[in-house]
């Protein structure tokens, strides 16, 4: 593959806190992802991983702390403009079912980046080519397999030329035989120099692809480091216990 990553930016999460009512979901999260690197976030359900991703692109506004994209705080400007610089891929794909595959990709290009119909189409076809689904351009998402849908969702995000990509359990809703194709695409994207934050339960992927793994539990990063250290020399008892359950 794949794509040419033009403008991967660094990402710094500093002391991010968030509470839903009295329920403290994030309690001072720190995460550093240098430009072009991949960080995997692992941890038990309810540890705040997905919420953390959503505070990075301000789908949820953090109560305290800061997120810096390319050294600048994301909290300063308009969230709508910020989100055009950050691609996000969801567990349930969230393609727009009333639009064809190609229109899913061209819609934001035309409406947000103001490309002409032809320019948008060309850019979309280029991305579809990269994820190996050019021949599905005119299909409806509902007629694609889960793996194909997720690759379209990745193409849709990449077409916006993001500086960072966020993956929220991108393979959790897939049938086992479809997981590999999507993980392979994500690995290639990491290889090509995209800055990525990947929330995942795929420990194999975290181990092989991540430059850095962060283990979250109860709203904080309990331990982080290179994959080898996390998976073979875990220090904290909570991480050791978690790994004993999932590996």
């Amino acid at each position: 593959m794949p794509t040419t990553v033009e403008l991967a930016a660094s990402l710094e999460v500093r002391g991010v806190e968030l509470a839903f009512g009295t329920n403290k979901v994030l309690r001072g999260v720190d995460l550093d992802v240098p430009a072009g690197r991949t960080a995997c976030v692992i941890g038990p359900s309810g540890s705040g991983k997905s919420t953390l991703l959503r505070t990075i692109n301000r789908l949820i506004e953090p109560d305290a702390g800061d997120v810096r994209l390319g050294g600048e705080s994301v909290l300063a400007g308009s969230p709508d403009v910020l989100r055009r610089r950050i691609g996000m891929v969801f567990q349930h794909f969230n393609l727009f079912p009333h639009k064809s595959v190609i229109d899913n990709i061209t819609l934001p290009l035309r409406k947000l980046q103001k490309l002409s119909v032809e320019e948008a189409r060309a850019a979309a076809l280029e991305q579809l080519e990269l994820v190996g689904l050019s021949e599905k351009a005119e299909s409806r998402p509902g007629n694609l397999s889960g793996g194909q849908q997720q690759r379209v969702a990745i193409a849709r995000a990449l077409a916006m030329k993001p500086e960072v990509m966020l993956f929220d359990e991108a393979t959790s809703a897939l049938d086992p035989e479809l997981v590999k194709g999507v993980l392979g695409l994500m690995a290639d994207l990491a290889q090509s120099g995209m800055t990525m934050v990947v929330v995942t339960h795929e420990m194999g992927f975290a181990r092989e692809v991540a430059d850095q793994v962060a283990f979250m539990d109860q709203g904080v990063v309990v331990e982080s480091g290179v994959p080898d250290q996390i998976f073979t020399a875990a220090e904290s008892p909570r991480l050791q216990q978690f790994l004993s359950q999932v590996l």
């Binding site: 996000m88 349930h92 934001p108 947000l112």
Partner: peptide
């Protein structure tokens, strides 16, 4: 589904769009 608006917003669309 709620994810539809969330996906649109994640791409950079305003709530209204």
């Amino acid at each position: 589904e709620k994810g539809q608006l969330e996906a649109a917003r994640a791409l950079g669309f305003s709530y209204t769009s």
